[in-house]
Design a protein around this nucleic acid. Structure first.
Length: 465
DNA sequence: ACGGTCC
DNA sequence: TCGTCTGTCACAAGACCGT
DNA sequence: TGTGACTGACGAG
């Protein structure tokens, strides 16, 4: 997940964008957390018995997995205890992936399943371990468990329409949250002003904060160029160009400005531009293509002696993509975003002239980054309320079999952190936050109850009754 | 700091 | 020649608590 | 699955 090698590139090229802070620095601040990713990591990490028997998740008596609940319970308490006010953001529908990508994932999954079965028959413990990890995923059930837990804890959450990262970024951009805590660098591509890493690992090792503005300055790019850089480096939505890594991608974008112009210039060289980066004509152009040309233009295949077809492919790419992005670039991106998430990937989109062609993959990817599907962050308001003690005990102890002492001590910490939170609010009433915090700590006062829009599935707080 | 345990 | 990319491999991905 | 260490290959200068 994320952008391949982006962390390292930032560390190398824009080190001033990365700062380390102690946890205390975030005292009183609101932070958005990608819940689905956290759940996934809990499911993978929290297991036992890799020695001897096959590793297994934590479960209750009925055999239901509880690893994710255990993890989330602890982490949330930890955050609150250090004065951080988390908002958990869940993934909605997965973004429309490039054709085949979805199939590939399903194939992988099926393969892992069958390998697991085989390993079980052979009593191959190691292999069982490996394959069962591969099968782990944050499903509906797990998400629902966690939402319930959060409500009982009095911690707000919301479900994004699509990708949680995009929603988190949107919240941070307008200051509804101070920063986004995630290990996924995609979030930067959505222009999160502040990205926090190392929120997870316990204790006192500092949190790394990446400042988006400083990162752009350090790299010497605009936001649009940064998105193109990420696509070139390799993102989740597209394959990347062989031979172009982080350094070259940065150099090329700086030199030529955007992907269109990069392609123009390197297509004269010997890079293999993957087929989906070029608009694939489904219905032959009347005149501009030779009659013998196949309906779908293929990329440079291995060492062919520079067939004229290749040149045509590149030419078409230049012309078409330029035409597509010319004039109302905004409109083009908007349209692409809609196409990207609503049209089946293999379904052709009509071009202006009525020809049927496929949009280049990078245009789709760009659109998904520029115009992701999100809830209007301005309409979302969050509230941290008193934990539901009885509810938590019933859920964790009675229903899931957690250790009563641990649960009780957790609840005690929750209450303590709430006390500190109230105190903080009183303090800040008299002394407006010292640093340059932009109103992010003072966001709740009135709590417009309106936010319950018909479709917006945001839920807040733990007052179910 | 480490290793066993959490369910 | 140097820098950069590719491939392969190993490994770890949480947090608590008592020692 | 992603990341770092270490590799050989290869293009740029």
């Amino acid at each position: 997940m994320g952008i391949k090698g982006l962390t390292k590139l930032i560390a190398d090229e824009a080190p001033e964008a990365i700062k380390e802070h102690k946890v205390e620095h975030y005292n009183g601040r609101t932070v958005a957390v990608d819940a689905s990713m956290a759940i996934y990591q809990f499911l993978i990490a929290i297991r036992h018995g890799s020695g001897g028997a096959a590793a297994s998740q934590l479960t209750n008596e009925a055999g239901e997995v509880t690893s994710h609940i255990q993890g989330l319970f602890n982490r949330t308490i930890r955050m609150l205890a250090s004065g951080i006010k988390p908002v958990f953001v869940f993934d909605g529908k997965p973004p429309t992936l490039k054709g085949g990508e979805l199939d590939k994932r399903r194939e992988k999954r099926e393969k892992a399943e069958s390998e697991l079965k085989k390993a079980q028959e052979e009593a191959n413990v190691e292999e069982q371990d490996r394959q069962s990890k591969r099968l782990v995923r944050a499903g509906k059930k797990e998400s629902a468990d966690c939402k319930k837990l959060l409500e009982l804890m009095g911690v707000p959450w919301l479900e994004a329409p699509c990708e949680a990262e995009a929603q988190c970024a949107a919240l941070a951009k307008i200051g509804k949250v101070y920063a986004v805590a995630t290990e996924d660098t995609d979030t930067l591509t959505f222009a999160t002003p502040r990205l926090l890493r190392n929120m997870t690992s316990a204790g006192d090792n500092p949190i790394k904060e990446i400042d988006y503005k400083k990162m752009l300055e350090g790299l010497g790019l605009t936001h649009a160029q940064f998105i193109d850089l990420c696509i070139l480096m390799g993102c989740d939505y597209t394959s990347n160009i062989r031979g172009i890594g982080p350094k070259s991608a940065l150099t090329l974008i700086k030199k030529y400005g955007d992907i269109e112009h990069v392609l123009e210039n390197i297509s004269k060289g010997k890079y293999q531009v993957p087929p989906e980066w070029l608009p694939r004509i489904k219905v032959r152009k009347p005149s501009s293509l030779p009659p013998s040309a196949p309906p779908s233009v293929s990329p440079v295949e291995e060492g062919d002696k520079a067939m004229p077809g290749d040149e045509n492919a590149c030419k078409t790419a230049e012309v078409d993509s330029k035409a597509g992005m010319e004039g109302e670039k905004e409109e083009g991106i908007k349209a692409a975003a809609i196409v990207a998430r609503e049209v089946a990937p293999d379904e052709p989109a009509k071009s202006v002239e009525g020809e049927v062609m496929e949009m280049p993959a990078y245009v789709m990817a760009r659109a998904l980054f520029v115009q992701p599907e999100i809830h209007d962050p301005a309409e979302l308001n969050f509230k941290w309320v008193e934990p539901n003690e009885a509810g938590l005990e019933a859920f964790l102890i009675d229903s899931l079999g957690f250790n009563p002492d641990r649960v009780k001590s957790g609840i005690a910490k929750l209450k303590a952190s709430r006390g500190a939170m109230q105190q903080k609010r009183l303090d800040s009433f008299f002394k407006p936050s010292g640093s340059s915090s932009t109103s992010s700590t003072t966001l709740k006062r009135k709590e417009a109850p309106a936010a319950a829009k018909g479709k917006g599935k945001a839920k807040f707080g733990g007052k179910k009754k």
